[in-house]
């Protein structure tokens, strides 16, 4: 059921962004990365599969619907990577605190921007203007747009993806955390 909710959220929000971009409703809206915010939100819990598949699916949706870019799979790669690594980290540290997760999102946004640029460099398909300085500027704008977007979206996701509390009678592992 949770997977279905994630799938629907990916479809609706990615499609919505595509349409809003078409009509240019808000300046700088193209810097806002819904897929990253969703991936980070789902990766704050130590569930590796959920984190990486949310990252892969939301990135793939971006590659398909919005990113008619020249490097198919780049968005999916970065989100899968971020999802997995963040989920591993969240197994050790508690990251659900509202302030901590905003900080984590900004860091992930920067990682996302630089990994995306690195993949273009690695495959020798660097678009014109993608210099280190320009990637830095874009990274800043994306971090700001994602931060503002997450202020709205994180509480919405908290409600949409609310899980039942841990029930010891049903067995299963509790997250192993040091803090």
């Amino acid at each position: 059921m949770l997977a279905l909710r994630i799938f629907l959220a990916i479809l609706i929000f990615t499609g919505l962004k595509s349409i809003l971009l078409k009509y240019r409703v808000l300046a700088g809206f193209n810097y806002f990365d819904f897929a990253l915010i969703l991936t980070v939100h789902q990766s704050l819990h130590p569930n590796l599969y959920r984190a990486m598949f949310t990252g892969a699916a939301s990135g793939l949706a971006q590659d398909l619907i919005q990113g008619v870019s020249k490097l198919m799979g780049a968005e999916s790669f970065t989100k899968t990577f971020i999802g997995y690594v963040l989920s591993v980290i969240s197994g050790r540290f508690r990251l659900e605190n509202p302030l901590v997760r905003m900080f984590v999102l900004v860091v992930c946004s920067a990682v996302n921007s630089w990994t995306y640029a690195f993949l273009h460099l690695y495959f020798s398909v660097v678009p014109q203007g993608m210099s280190v300085k320009q990637v830095g500027i874009t990274c800043g704008w994306e971090a700001l747009a994602n931060f503002l977007g997450a202020i709205v979206l994180f509480p919405i996701f908290d409600r949409i993806f609310k899980e039942a509390p841990y029930d010891p009678t049903r067995g299963g592992d509790l997250p192993r955390r040091k803090f």
Binding site: M52, A56, M72, F123, D173
Partner: peptide, 29 residues
């Protein structure tokens, strides 16, 4: 608490996903 078999397989799935995406990018590049 020992990690389950499913948790043990997660890194393999992760690497498989990344390799698939790298192949996709390589094809497009």
């Amino acid at each position: 608490m020992k990690p389950t078999e499913s948790q043990n397989r997660a890194p393999i799935v992760f690497i498989a996903l990344l390799v698939a995406q790298l192949l996709t990018m390589s094809l497009h590049a």
